[in-house]
Simulated scan of single mutants.
Amino acid sequence: MTDAAKADLAAYLQRGREDLLWKLSGASEFDVRRPLTPTGTNLLGLVKHVASVESGYLGEVFGRPFAEPLPWLDDDAEPNADMWATAEESREQLVALYHRVWAHSDATIEALDLAATGTVPWWPEERRHPTLHRVLVHVIAETHRHAGHADVVRELADGAVGLRQTNDNLARIDWPEHVQRLQETADRFRGQAGETT
Results as ranks from 00 to 15, higher is better:
66 F>I: 00
126 E>W: 05
21 L>D: 01
103 A>L: 10
111 A>Q: 09
32 V>F: 04
157 A>T: 02
52 S>R: 01
83 M>S: 09
49 H>F: 10
112 L>A: 10
126 E>A: 15
167 N>L: 14
98 Y>K: 06
19 D>V: 15
133 H>D: 09
184 E>R: 06
90 S>E: 10
178 H>N: 09
191 G>K: 03
107 A>T: 10
15 R>I: 13
111 A>M: 13
42 N>W: 01
20 L>P: 01
110 E>L: 12
81 A>V: 05
2 T>D: 11
188 R>M: 08
84 W>L: 09
133 H>M: 10
147 A>S: 09
13 L>E: 02
186 A>F: 06
79 P>G: 12
54 E>C: 09
155 E>L: 06
31 D>I: 00
119 T>D: 05
70 L>E: 07
1 M>V: 14
112 L>V: 15
116 A>D: 12
57 Y>S: 02
124 P>L: 09
21 L>H: 01
156 L>H: 01
141 A>I: 07
75 D>N: 10
193 A>Y: 02
148 G>Y: 07
12 Y>C: 13
42 N>A: 06
66 F>C: 02
144 H>I: 10
53 V>N: 03
69 P>G: 11
11 A>S: 15
168 D>R: 12
67 A>I: 02
141 A>N: 13
106 D>Y: 03
165 Q>D: 14
160 A>Y: 09
179 V>D: 03
134 R>A: 12
111 A>I: 11
59 G>W: 01
4 A>S: 13
39 T>I: 05
182 L>H: 03
197 T>D: 06
